[in-house]
């Protein structure tokens, strides 16, 4: 029997396949297709203290083997999450993780505290990496000092496991990962999207209402694999790898690079069933190669 369970600090997932924040709404949007309990975890849409309208459209542009998005954290706010979205998940089994985004340390603390006794929540992902908002977001995630301070503050205000989501738009992502570790994170997740831009050459205008956006999808996978590889050897806490995972082969690459779990985002749009197909492929790969636990995959590149 292959062991697919993974430990992310105090959080245990039944399997290492998760869906990324922003791609899966508030956990109920894909319910008619399959049960979220089949997944290791579902990262819910990023939440701010107050509801946010988000950015001016157009918000998405397709790019070579990927897409740019500039949603701008449109969300229902903490109250909407607690009053509508989490109750809608009542009775639905699954490991649901909230993603929180503040414009200040106080706001992060405020959301974390509000979620303390929220039903149906297994953890908190601290979003210091959104590239599409003016205040907060990536502005924190490019600073090791701010990342550590926010992580520490959230750590103190919740008993839930916390995962810090990192931006790739930095000089050395290992520094930021070390700061999250020092601040008390149970795990880190990376990479959020790469800052990008696309221009309409006929109208001679940016294609996104926000001008710039975040690049995701298969196009960014090699960048993500490299960052997962370098971060996983710089810190002791587990890494959730993401960035262009579309097939089970892609997922295996991330585990070999050092990821304990993986997250699927853009590929869910192409095939909502891809998380289940990827999980199945991982299982078959492990069986075929007589590897009895997913945890062993990260050992292969250790010596390099």
């Amino acid at each position: 029997m292959t062991d697919l369970s993974v430990k992310l600090g105090r959080l245990t997932l039944k399997n290492p396949v998760t869906v990324a924040s922003g791609a899966y709404g508030y956990g109920a949007e894909y319910l008619t297709l399959y049960a979220p309990s089949l997944l290791g975890a579902v990262f819910l849409k990023g939440i701010t203290p107050k509801p946010r309208a988000g950015n001016q459209p157009p918000r998405i542009v397709e790019t070579p083997a990927g897409m740019l998005n500039a949603i701008g954290l449109q969300n229902v706010g903490i109250e909407g999450l607690l009053k509508d979205k989490l109750p809608a998940l009542q009775g639905i089994e699954g490991c649901f993780i909230a993603n929180i985004a503040g414009e200040s340390i106080d706001e992060f603390v405020q959301i974390a505290e509000a979620l303390e006794n929220a039903p149906n929540l297994s953890g908190i992902e601290v979003n210091v990496s959104c590239p599409n908002v003016r205040k907060g977001g990536m502005a924190f995630g490019v600073s090791a000092k701010a990342t550590e301070a926010i992580t520490r503050a959230v750590r103190k205000s919740t008993s839930l496991p916390i995962i810090v989501k990192l931006t790739p738009n930095v000089t050395d992502i290992r520094e930021i990962a070390r700061a999250a570790e020092a601040g008390g994170a149970d795990a880190v997740s990376l990479i959020n999207t790469l800052l990008g831009m696309a221009i309409d050459i006929e109208k001679r205008r940016p294609l996104l209402g926000n001008i710039t956006g975040g690049l995701s999808g298969p196009a960014i996978r090699p960048v993500a694999v490299n960052m997962v590889w370098s971060v996983s050897r710089a810190i002791k806490i587990p890494v959730i790898g993401m960035g262009g995972v579309r097939t089970w082969e892609d997922a295996i690459e991330f585990f070999l690079a050092g990821a304990s779990a993986i997250s699927i985002g853009t590929a869910v749009f192409q095939d909502p069933l891809s998380p289940l197909k990827i999980l199945d492929g991982i299982q078959k790969y492990l069986e075929k190669n007589s590897i009895d636990s997913i945890k062993h995959l990260s050992e292969y590149l250790k010596k390099d």
Binding site: G22, A23, Y24, G25, E29, Y30, K45, A53, G54, P57, P58, R59, I60, V61, E62, M67, N69, I71, Q74, T266, V268, F269, P272
Partner: peptide, 20 residues
């Protein structure tokens, strides 16, 4: 233009009198 098509990603919003 749409990404998810199921209401999850907020990518296809249009302006209305009551917001996006």
């Amino acid at each position: 233009r749409m990404a998810c098509g199921v209401g999850a990603c907020m990518g296809c919003v249009t302006r209305t009198i009551s917001g996006f």
